[in-house]
């Protein structure tokens, strides 16, 4: 089994990258060191990449740069070859809290932003279909008229995911979306994410602090460490999903990630 080899795979079996970062530097004004320096990254179409790293290393900052929410101090981020200016229409971002708008019903929340000026024009009928499909995909059709205050944490995250899907994303950027959920709900959401990525053929970057989550859902895992942050480990996982039957193989990677992470943390403390 070579599938678990810790390698960056050769350029030959690469598909075209949908998202590409080259020499990205992010330096918040007034801070001593940059958060991120000389960061290179490629995201292939349909690929799911998890980003792990100690708290405060700069994962969220990096995601904001990759999504066009934050302009890098230096370097470029391109989507399908075009440099980002703001968040492109086919990039959907979800944050740790579902950030549903409490004054809108679930379906209005899912539809939120579809008719904004910088989004591709949709007729009312098209928007409605998008919203219906997205809500069905996350299994919330019965709750479509609920208001956010009536939703459980898991349902709220489903709704947030549906809002991302309604825009038919080519890239999903997820910043610890399941971090606040209980174990069972989180597992459910992980399976949902796998399904969604498959059904919508979308690429995804998932920030998480849960190594098992990364192991269960991603094609590739990046481990960030140091200040400024750089990639201190990269693992490719060529196992079919769902992965509950591959605990042994995943366990080996898990140990590796943990020891690498521990090394990085110790270096940081000393």
């Amino acid at each position: 089994m070579t599938a678990l080899a810790q390698t960056i795979s050769p350029a030959s079996d690469r598909q075209v990258a949908v998202l590409e970062a080259a020499g990205v530097v992010l330096h918040y004004p007034g801070q001593l060191k940059p958060v991120v320096e000389a960061f290179d990254f490629e995201l292939d179409a349909g690929e799911t990449v998890s980003v792990l790293g100690p708290s405060g290393v700069g994962k969220s900052s990096l995601l904001r740069v990759l999504g066009g929410l934050q302009e890098p101090t230096d370097g470029t981020v391109t989507m399908n070859g075009k440099p980002l200016r703001g968040v492109p229409p086919r990039v959907s971002i979800a944050f740790q809290d579902a950030s549903l708008l409490p004054w809108l019903s679930l379906e209005k929340n899912v539809a939120f932003g579809l008719n904004f000026k910088h989004q591709p024009h949709l007729t009312q009928e098209e928007s409605k279909v998008r919203v219906d499909v997205a809500i069905r995909e996350v299994g919330l059709t019965h709750a479509r008229r609920y208001f956010p205050a009536q939703l459980s944490g898991g349902m709220a995250q489903r709704a947030a995911l549906a809002r991302c899907l309604a825009r038919k994303p080519e890239i999903l950027l997820l910043d610890e979306p399941f971090g606040a959920l209980d174990e069972v709900t989180r597992t459910e959401m992980q399976h949902l994410l796998l399904k969604v990525v498959r059904d919508f053929h979308t690429a995804a970057i998932l920030i998480t602090h849960d190594i098992d989550e990364a192991l269960l859902v991603s094609d590739r895992i990046l481990l960030l460490g140091g200040t400024p942050a750089r990639v201190i480990g990269e693992w490719r996982i060529d196992l079919p999903t769902p992965r509950e039957d591959y605990i042994a193989e995943l366990g080996a990677i898990r140990v590796e990630i943990l020891s690498r992470l521990r090394g990085a943390t110790l270096r940081r403390i000393n």
Binding site: L69, V87, S99, L101, G113, Q119
Partner: peptide, 24 residues
């Protein structure tokens, strides 16, 4: 996070005002 949401949907200033800030 509501404002981040507006940013992530590439909302214009006017859209942010009208759809997020005023109802908020």
């Amino acid at each position: 996070s509501w404002l981040s949401l507006a940013d992530s949907l590439a909302a214009t200033r006017w859209e942010t005002l009208w759809y997020v800030i005023l109802p908020g």
